[in-house]
Simulated scan of single mutants.
Amino acid sequence: MKQLLKSREIWLFLALVAVVIGTTLRSPAFGSFDNLLGIFNNSSMLIILALGQMVVIITRSIDLSMAANLALSGMCVALINAGYPEIPVPVLVLIATACGTILGAFNGLLIWKLGIPSIVVTLGTLTIYRGVIFLIAGGKWVNADQLSPAFIQGTRLDILGMPLLSWCAIAITLAFFVMMTRTATGRSIYAVGVNPTASVYAGINLGKTIFLAFCISGLVSGLCGYLWVSRYVIGSVEVAKGYELSIIAACVIGGVSIAGGIGTVAGTVLGALFLGLVNSALPVINISPFWQMAISGAAIILAVVFNARGERRQGRIILKNTRSDP
C-alpha cells in the first residue's frame, strides 16, 4: 500500500478526481460524461505531443520546436489541400507526418553530428520553422472556405461515440506504452537518459538514440499539424504559438524528469489531462483563461521541485544502503 501511495500516477489521478468533484460541486454539468469526454477530446493533441516530448526529455534533451513543427507541417498540408482538394486525406496525413519527421530529424542531426545542445538547436529551429511558414504562405492564412469538407471532417468523424481525434490519442498512447516498455528502442532511450556513459559501454549508440527521439517527436508534431488544422480549421504562422510551454508542463507534471532517465507514458498522459481539466475548469470557477500560461508555468516549477526532492530522497536511500553493506 505504501508503495502504491508513492506512485506519481496515483496522486495525479487523485488530483484529477479532486478537480472534477470540486468543479462539479460548483457546476453539476461539468461532471457529466459528455463534458468529460469533450475535455479528453480537447486534450488529445496535448497528450500526443507530450508523449513525443517525453521521449526527448528522457534522453536528457528538450524539443522547443514541436509547436513550430506542428504549425509548419499543418500549413504545408493546408496549402496542398487548398490547391489540390482531390488528394485523399490519408495521403495528406502521411505528408504531414513525413514533413514533421524530416523537421525533427533535422533537429536530431544537428544535435548528433555537431554536438550542439538541444535547447539551442530547437530554439533556433523554432524561429526558422515559423519563418518558413510565413514565406510559403506569403503571410496569408488558410481558412475554412479554402479547405475541402473531407479535410475538415477528418477529426470530427464519430466512431463508437467518440471523435476520431480521441481515438488517435488512445492509439498513440498504446503505441508509446508498448515502445517504451516492451522494445529495445524504449530500453535504449531510458538507458541514455539514466547514464549516457554506461549506455555507450553497453553498446548503445548515444547519438543515434537521441536522433531517433527527435524523429519521434517530429513525427507526432507532423501528425498533430494535420489534426490541428482540421480541428480548428485554420493554418497560419500563429498556430500553436506558445504551446511549447503546455507540452513541457504536461511532461513535467506527469513526472518526467528534466534531468532525463525518468518518465512514464501513464504519467505523461495524466499530466496532459490534468492541464486540460484545469483549463476547462477555470471559466467555471470564474478565473480568466488568460491565467492558463501562468498556471502552466507555476505547475512546471512545482513539479520540478517535487521531482528533485524525490530524486534526492532516492539518492539518500541508495547511499544509505551502500554504507550499510559489509
Results as ranks from 00 to 15, higher is better:
3 Q>Y: 01
4 L>W: 08
5 L>R: 07
8 R>G: 01
10 I>F: 07
12 L>E: 06
12 L>G: 12
14 L>H: 00
18 A>N: 00
19 V>T: 01
23 T>V: 06
25 L>C: 13
29 A>W: 06
31 G>I: 01
31 G>N: 01
31 G>W: 00
32 S>V: 00
33 F>M: 10
35 N>G: 00
41 N>S: 15
41 N>Y: 02
42 N>P: 06
44 S>C: 03
45 M>W: 07
46 L>M: 11
49 L>Y: 08
52 G>L: 13
59 T>A: 13
60 R>Q: 14
60 R>C: 06
62 I>C: 03
66 M>N: 08
73 S>L: 05
78 A>E: 06
82 A>K: 15
84 Y>K: 05
87 I>M: 07
90 P>L: 06
91 V>T: 13
93 V>R: 02
96 A>S: 15
99 C>F: 06
100 G>D: 08
110 L>P: 04
117 P>D: 11
122 T>P: 11
130 R>C: 12
132 V>K: 13
133 I>V: 15
136 I>N: 07
141 W>T: 05
146 Q>S: 15
149 P>I: 11
151 F>S: 03
155 T>S: 14
155 T>N: 13
157 L>C: 00
162 M>K: 03
162 M>L: 14
163 P>Y: 11
168 C>M: 14
171 A>K: 07
172 I>Q: 12
173 T>W: 10
173 T>Q: 05
174 L>K: 08
178 V>N: 07
182 R>N: 12
183 T>I: 06
184 A>S: 15
184 A>N: 14
187 R>N: 12
187 R>Y: 11
189 I>S: 10
190 Y>R: 12
194 V>R: 11
194 V>Q: 11
198 A>S: 11
200 V>P: 00
201 Y>L: 09
202 A>E: 09
203 G>T: 11
206 L>I: 04
206 L>M: 07
207 G>T: 04
212 L>E: 02
221 S>L: 13
224 C>Y: 03
225 G>T: 09
226 Y>F: 15
232 Y>E: 06
237 V>M: 05
238 E>A: 02
240 A>W: 02
241 K>R: 15
251 C>I: 05
251 C>A: 03
253 I>F: 05
253 I>M: 10
254 G>T: 04
254 G>Y: 04
259 A>S: 09
262 I>V: 13
263 G>N: 09
265 V>A: 03
266 A>E: 09
267 G>F: 09
272 A>N: 03
272 A>V: 05
274 F>P: 03
276 G>K: 05
277 L>I: 02
278 V>C: 01
283 P>A: 03
285 I>W: 03
285 I>V: 15
286 N>G: 00
289 P>N: 11
290 F>Y: 11
290 F>S: 10
291 W>A: 15
294 A>S: 12
295 I>L: 13
296 S>C: 14
297 G>L: 09
301 I>A: 12
304 V>H: 10
304 V>I: 14
309 R>N: 10
309 R>L: 14
311 E>H: 01
311 E>T: 02
313 R>S: 14
315 G>H: 00
317 I>A: 13
318 I>Q: 03
319 L>M: 04
324 S>C: 01
325 D>R: 13
326 P>S: 09
